[in-house]
Write a protein that binds this DNA or RNA. Structure first.
Length: 688
RNA sequence: GCUGGCGUAGCUCAAUCGGCAGAGCACCGGUUUUGUAAACCGGAUGUUAGGGGUUCAAGUCCCCUCGCCAGCUCCA
């Protein structure tokens, strides 16, 4: 009887009993209620999920979790990760195990393999080995052991990472081991569980990829080999998941950007997008849509410089907190000055060359001392200068300042990704300067505007995160208390559901993050609003209150699309490149059946354009089928087919991207229809 | 930045063991005058990312740099 708490049950499943007779296993509780069947993978107790072997008080309310129930998938995947590690260690002796959790889409397990990376062929082999283990339908057993026992056991196996994990488990917590496999082929892992009762409950398995990952996510630690996989109860569900991945690949905005002539990149401006006319058209329409809404929402747009004296960033705190991500432009005068002082310094040092590190320190210092220009990574400091430029009254507040200025941020090489993470971009940025008592009202107004905009782009699923103070920050704890509670209160007042993410706030203030799910159920962070008491203080911002005294305004940083570039990337994938009529670069392409209709084609094109419709025409000598195919691939919302019949009757035979062929109609009616349909639409998003 | 992989025509991709750089699409010229997802014939297309090395010979092997991809880390 190991650890003094358990006995082996009749089916080899370990049951646990305390000395007190009123304890039963979850399994026994289910049997008592007549709820045990072969689909049960675990039970829910309150908010947590535990496995069938867990000893519980007799009076505990347990709810069975069966295959297909929410929560079951995680248990299945986690158990599948164990089976994978088992297979891997069987096939690749000498490989050490570390951790293997489940993720949103599947699971992974990190290995330390002396022979280096796994190949795709290895994955196939491992999969096969896993299927055999599943087929054996062997039970998972849980046992609780003492710390010393656990350490002994894993030390004996040479599992140094496991030993490290055990040493990190706080005193008083159970140390549990899980073993699965048929006799003689058993495999044990340190794990908190829960796990399925038997490997036979594991369904369709697919190992998807292999990648490097640091031990404990720290880049100073050794790189491990991570194998990603996924598992579903049935092959059909796995196939559906794989089909979604394929669909995501097809919709990848980088691919569509190329195919649809939207944007490009060039290695001479890495991670900085170039928008072709079609892309620029969509981009500008997004921005113009916001500008239209800003009128009603009381925003005023400003235009601010691109490059500033470093003193600006000293004042704002960016130099101290954000320097690694900034570009420092050098006016040619300053370059001369720097080189001059470098030579002088060298002379003083007796002419000997400086070491790399010393030189870097010297030059960095000089750059910061000199009145160097840095490309702005954010608009807020510039806006503070505008606020401070003259005396402000409480009557002017709130002042809602909007700015679509370009920002430059030096992102580390490995993080840039298509339009989603770039080094040159614009935000639909805005800063609201207001009195402290106006903060709540402004947050509420912002929320309304945000939902209005998301619904126009047909993002229906929004979830909110409240990110609180990070370790590296400016401002006092009182300020942070105030700011965090203002955000939380606005959410509670609006009845919006949210999640708190501790330590994720900006260095100058806490923030709300608005995440949306796209058509493929992937989550993206778009909007944000941040409460900032620090920046106004650093810039000495003041306004005259109704009492005649000077007061400090609060600053709200806010964006709805976030980075316009990133939003465009997300939106391209959301709509699969099939832009709705209101935002499509071209709304109509006219297609002539033969060159006989060229003249009417040109007339119709001019007419549509005269009505303000974005139209193009394909008057080439291609056959109709080919022209339609080309137009379909470019995803024009409407095709206007023109043959002899249409040319004679001043008609258009429309073909809608969504609805297919339509009855021929008068050119004028066609134009009316397009104009009527070309409005931002959609139903308001839900907030579950 | 780290680990691994990749970089061949505008695009998608071939090129056996190190042995003549190729195909389709796009493009250009011609024929066809077409009714709802690809007409036909012909033509041009390259610093094989850049630099260096090994070799009689390098797209292919080695080194460096740049860029891209996946993941990690980061994401004010």
């Amino acid at each position: 009887m190991q650890g003094g708490v358990g006995v082996w049950g009749p089916e080899g499943v370990k049951t646990e009993r305390s000395n007190m007779s009123n304890r039963k296993t979850a399994k026994e509780l289910l049997v008592d209620k007549g709820q045990l069947d072969d689909k049960v993978v675990a039970v829910r107790v309150g908010k947590s999920i535990v496995d069938l072997h867990t000893a519980l008080d007799e009076a505990t309310v347990v709810e069975p979790i069966r295959i297909g129930d929410p929560g079951a998938l995680d248990v299945v995947r986690h158990s599948t990760a164990h089976v994978m590690a088992d297979a891997v260690q069987r096939m690749f002796p000498g490989t050490k195990v570390t951790i293997g959790p489940c993720t949103e889409d599947g699971f992974y397990y990190d290995f330390d393999r002396p022979d280096g990376a796994f190949t795709d062929a290895d994955l196939k082999k491992i999969e096969k080995g896993m299927r055999e283990i599943v087929k054996a339908n062997a039970p998972f057993r849980r046992e609780v052991v003492t710390r010393a026992e656990a350490i002994d056991r894993f030390k004996g196996l040479g599992e140094t990472y496991k030993v490290e994990i055990i040493e990190g488990i706080p005193e008083g917590e159970d140390i549990s081991l899980y073993t699965h496999g048929v006799k003689g082929k058993e495999w044990t892992d340190l794990c908190a569980g829960p796990h399925v009762p038997s490997t036979g409950l594991l369904g369709a398995i697919k190992l998807t990829s292999v990648a490097g990952a640091y031990w404990r996510g720290d880049e100073r630690n050794p790189m491990l080999q991570r194998i990603y996989g996924t598992a579903f109860p049935t092959q059909e569900e796995l196939d559906e998941h794989l089909r979604m991945l394929e669909e995501a690949k097809k919709r990848d905005h980088r691919k569509l950007g190329k195919e649809l002539d939207l944007f490009m990149f060039h290695e001479w401006a890495p991670a900085m997008p170039f928008f072709y006319p079609r892309g620029a058209s969509v981009y500008n329409r997004m921005v113009d849509f916001l500008r239209g809404l800003y009128v009603g929402a009381g925003y005023e747009e400003v235009i601010t410089p691109q490059i500033y004296d470093t003193r600006l960033y000293q004042t704002s705190g960016h130099l101290a907190n954000y320097r690694e991500n900034m570009y420092f432009g050098i006016p040619s005068d300053s370059l001369g000055e720097i080189l001059g002082s470098y030579e002088e310094y060298q002379k003083k040092q007796g002419g000997k060359a400086l070491g790399d590190k010393e030189r870097e320190e010297f030059l960095t210092h000089e750059i910061m001392q000199a009145r160097f220009a840095g490309a702005k990574p954010m608009n807020c400091p510039g806006h503070c200068l505008m606020f401070a430029s003259r005396r402000r009254s409480y009557r002017d507040l709130p002042w809602r300042m909007a700015d679509f200025g370009r920002l430059h941020r030096y992102e580390r090489g490995g993080v840039v990704h298509g339009l989603a993470r770039v080094r040159s971009f614009a935000q639909d940025d805005g800063h609201i300067f207001c009195m402290p008592e106006q903060v709540q009202e402004e947050i509420s107004r912002f929320n309304k505007l945000l939902y209005r905009i998301y619904s126009a782009f047909e993002f229906k699923d929004v979830h909110i995160k409240l990110a609180t103070r990070p370790e590296k920050r400016i401002g006092t704890d009182e300020m942070w208390d105030l700011a965090e509670s203002a955000l939380e209160k606005a959410l509670i007042d609006a009845g919006l559901a949210y999640e708190i993410t501790p330590g994720e706030g900006a260095f100058y203030g806490p923030k709300l993050e608005f995440h949306v799910r796209d058509a493929l159920k992937r989550s993206w962070q778009l909007g944000t609003i941040q409460v900032d008491y620090s920046m106004p203080e650093r810039f000495g911002l003041e306004y005259v209150g109704s009492d005649g005294a000077m007061h400090r305004p609060v600053m709200l940083h806010r964006a709805i699309l976030g980075s316009v570039e990133r939003f465009m990337g997300v939106y391209i994938e959301h709509c699969g490149g099939a832009f709705p009529l209101w935002i499509a670069p071209e709304q109509v392409i006219l297609v002539t059946v033969s060159e006989k209709q060229t003249q009417y084609g040109q007339e119709a094109l001019a007419y549509l354009r005269g009505r303000g419709i974005r139209a193009v025409a394909d008057l080439s000598a291609d056959k109709l089928g080919a022209k339609i195919r080309n137009a379909r691939m470019m995803r024009y919302p409407y095709l206007g087919i023109i043959g002899d019949r249409e040319a004679e009757g001043r008609l258009i035979a429309p073909r809608s991207r969504e609805a297919g062929e339509l009855e021929p109609m008068a050119l004028e009616s066609f134009a009316d229809r397009i104009l009527a349909e070309a409005v931002p639409g959609g139903t308001p998003p839900s907030n579950p």
